[in-house]
Design a protein around this nucleic acid. Structure first.
Lengths: 192, 192
DNA sequence: CTCTGGCGGCACGGAACGTGCCGTCTTGAC
DNA sequence: GTCAAGACGGCACGTTCCGTGCCGCCAGAG
């Protein structure tokens, strides 16, 4: 049994692999992305990839994490409604832009038939964003700007779900207008 | 050029292929589902599959459509809020059950890196559900049960997005409680 | 009767998979 | 200073599945 020793890992190789994966995914698309292709592009043996990552999607996830500075902190101007719009728009600008959307989208897709990736995507990425949003919402609840009798998780699902639904299921795209409309609608409610 | 002649198509073979795909996807999972495997299980030549479907996902989509009776009509008891809960719960019971969820989920996942499948999934399935919901919502708007100044599409995204987000992105599962809470929250709004 | 086209079956070349083995090099323990 | 451990790049292998082409068979249309 070859026990992994991360301290002896060649960081140059690792980042070359990640960069090659990101580049190739952009160029040829996720479908045609292959471990062999990544290894060749990175100038690395296939084994080096298999040694550290369970799948090509895992490489891509590392790439997504390294690209995002993971600064998921929310603004706090005192107006939650505006802050939510600001933050969601910023999210769309980065995650929804041409630089990251293909990778994020491919990961979400792949996670639907890879339970381990699904868990990893949640643990290492989505849950972080969610936690940051929850913190801002809880603050607003304490300040009386949002009903305090509702689980923040539910509010996050309501607000963010709309955008994901539109992106993943429909041919429509997410823009500033939808974000503003969704936040306003969620705050005001459907009742007349 | 061999022009397709649907009228000469062998319906027995077609349904055998679809059934084999559904069964195999349940047994071995979408990842290990292969055209060769489907053909063997169905007692059919590979060509017969390639002749009529562009990909294994397309076969699965046909399977999903044939399984769902596609009765997406909404109840109308006069109380939209209750009707929405009823309908969404019914959706979860079928699409979210063990019989269909694996296939639906695999299709949504695959659609994220297959534009044609994404379009087909929308055109032939999701848009139908969406249209049925939109009709019920418009009725409620005319009856004054829902604010009339909001695009029904946005309301659908708000209500359905939450469940999809939970299912596709988080480790949580969708249950009756979430549905009720989401509908109630959406109607009442986040404002205190 | 004959032609068309779908059918099952088979074979092929190619791509990528995942694994194993090699010789080299670096590193840390003794 | 020596030496074993382990990561590395490179290569080769067997396997699976891909997508295509060709075959002979059969049914329906002209």
């Amino acid at each position: 049994m070859a026990t992994r020793r991360p301290e002896r890992r060649n960081e140059e190789s690792a980042s070359a692999v990640i960069q090659a994966a990101l580049d190739l995914c952009q160029e040829v698309g996720y479908r045609k992305l292959s471990i062999e292709g990544i290894a060749a592009r990175a100038g690395v043996g296939k084994n080096t990839i298999y040694r550290w990552w369970p799948s090509k999607a895992a490489v891509l996830l590392d790439g997504l994490l390294s690209t995002m500075t993971m600064d998921a902190s929310f603004p706090d101007t005192g107006d939650v409604r505006a802050d939510l719009k600001t933050q969601m728009a910023a999210g769309i600008r980065t995650l929804g832009g041409p630089g990251l959307l293909p990778h994020y989208r491919a990961l979400i897709g792949e996670a639907q038939h890879d339970p381990e990736l699904h868990q990893a995507l949640w643990d290492r990425f989505v849950s972080k964003l969610s936690a940051a949003a929850a913190a801002r919402i809880e603050l607003a609840q304490k300040q009386g700007q949002i009903r305090a009798d509702v689980d923040p998780v539910l509010i996050i699902e309501l607000l963010y779900g709309a955008g994901y639904y539109r992106r993943l299921l429909t041919p429509r795209t997410v823009d500033q207008e939808q974000i503003d409309a969704i936040v306003d609608l969620a705050f005001q409610g459907l009742a007349p």
